[in-house]
Amino acid sequence: MDVDALKTAALVAQHGSFTAAARVIDVDASTVSRTVASVENKIGLRLFQRNARSLTLTEEGAAYLSRVGPLLLELDHAADEARQLRELPSGTLRMTASVAFAYEVIVPHLAAFRDLYPKIIVELLPTDATVDILAEKIDLAIRLASAPEGDVISTKLMSTRYRVCASPDYLDRTGAIDHPTDLQTHDCLRFALPEFRSTWKFRRGTDDIAVPVGGTLLISNALGLRRAARDGLGPVLLGDWLVKDDLAQGRLVDLFPDWECSATTFDTGAWALYPSREFLPRKVRAMIDFLKPRLRTAGR
């Protein structure tokens, strides 16, 4: 069936005459009449009752066009969306992440993102506080945690692991730390969050232990903890994405490379969270699709 012909028939029903519909699409009334007749022939129904002075919908015509009308609108919407895919997404993207993750992982990729999507304005809001993304009108939040819960949509960007590290200088002063339980006698550097400040967890094969930790220095920011560890102030529990360069370059030493380490659960990752919406804005989809392959590579 010719979609344009169906649109013409719907237009006649809307305006009540061939002449009025012809004026809308700028053709002759006779052309509109022939188009409607062709539709009627193809579907085997008379859509309009015609006489010399009036034109009215038949019962069958009203039923048919009431079903066809929404389909025609949906076809128009689908065409509009397809055309938009040829255009670069635009607008302001408000996103948030922890301070350390934003600076160490997100910011290094923003130049490449800007080259790909020059029409998107990125408003990055680093914070270690848990932000209400609905109340704060956040389009995209990156959270480091186990699988998120609640009335949000999420997708995993990368898996994360935690490592317990110390500087070579610290180990020279205090001696080797051979087992996780040895940490109980050390002045550990602790994240100032309830789940991080008192117990660190370790797992290796069938061994699964929780080690009480203490120390005289608590810091609420992972970048500060890393600096303190580099300066030889004690052992620290940090994400692998934050310390991998320090480990590679010898600024820090992985104390327990054969153990899984955590303060919460062992299955953690970086998750992209966004408010529940019927349609995901293209600017948000662009950022998620951009980050996924880059962060997964960085997390290896």
Score class of each variant (00 low, 15 high):
residue 161 R to F: 11
residue 118 P to W: 05
residue 126 P to E: 01
residue 287 M to G: 09
residue 17 S to E: 07
residue 69 G to N: 08
residue 283 K to W: 06
residue 28 D to I: 02
residue 44 G to C: 13
residue 62 A to Y: 06
residue 21 A to H: 03
residue 85 L to F: 11
residue 36 V to S: 00
residue 73 L to D: 13
residue 2 D to Y: 04
residue 117 Y to V: 05
residue 176 A to F: 03
residue 10 A to M: 04
residue 190 R to W: 07
residue 197 R to Y: 09
residue 157 L to D: 02
residue 127 T to E: 09
residue 230 R to I: 15
residue 56 T to E: 11
residue 102 A to P: 01
residue 39 V to A: 08
residue 201 K to I: 12
residue 266 F to N: 04
residue 196 F to I: 03
residue 289 D to Y: 09
residue 231 D to W: 08
residue 237 L to A: 10
residue 159 S to R: 14
residue 67 R to M: 12
residue 113 F to S: 06
residue 53 R to T: 14
residue 176 A to P: 01
residue 191 F to V: 11
residue 265 T to Q: 13
residue 50 R to G: 10
residue 299 G to V: 04
residue 33 S to C: 04
residue 127 T to L: 06
residue 53 R to S: 11
residue 114 R to S: 10
residue 73 L to R: 13
residue 30 S to Y: 00
residue 57 L to D: 01
residue 237 L to H: 04
residue 256 F to P: 11
residue 277 R to F: 06
residue 214 G to N: 10
residue 33 S to T: 05
residue 19 T to F: 01
residue 138 I to N: 04
residue 188 C to Y: 13
residue 63 A to K: 01
residue 25 I to N: 00
residue 41 N to R: 15
residue 70 P to Y: 03
residue 234 G to D: 12
residue 239 G to Q: 08
residue 26 D to A: 13
residue 96 T to Y: 12
residue 210 A to F: 01
residue 113 F to H: 06
residue 229 A to I: 03
residue 181 T to F: 12
residue 61 G to Y: 02
residue 201 K to R: 15
residue 242 L to F: 14
residue 76 D to F: 09
residue 54 S to L: 09
residue 196 F to D: 14
residue 253 V to Q: 00
residue 24 V to T: 09
residue 96 T to G: 13
residue 76 D to E: 15
residue 255 L to C: 06
residue 260 E to L: 03
residue 48 F to H: 03
residue 284 V to A: 05
residue 37 A to T: 09
residue 133 I to E: 00
residue 31 T to W: 02
residue 200 W to S: 06
residue 165 C to R: 01
residue 50 R to L: 14
residue 40 E to L: 04
residue 15 H to L: 15
residue 173 R to Q: 13
residue 194 P to S: 14
residue 296 R to N: 11
residue 35 T to Y: 02
residue 49 Q to N: 14
residue 73 L to H: 07
residue 285 R to C: 05
residue 263 A to K: 03
residue 188 C to W: 14
residue 93 L to I: 10
residue 215 G to E: 08
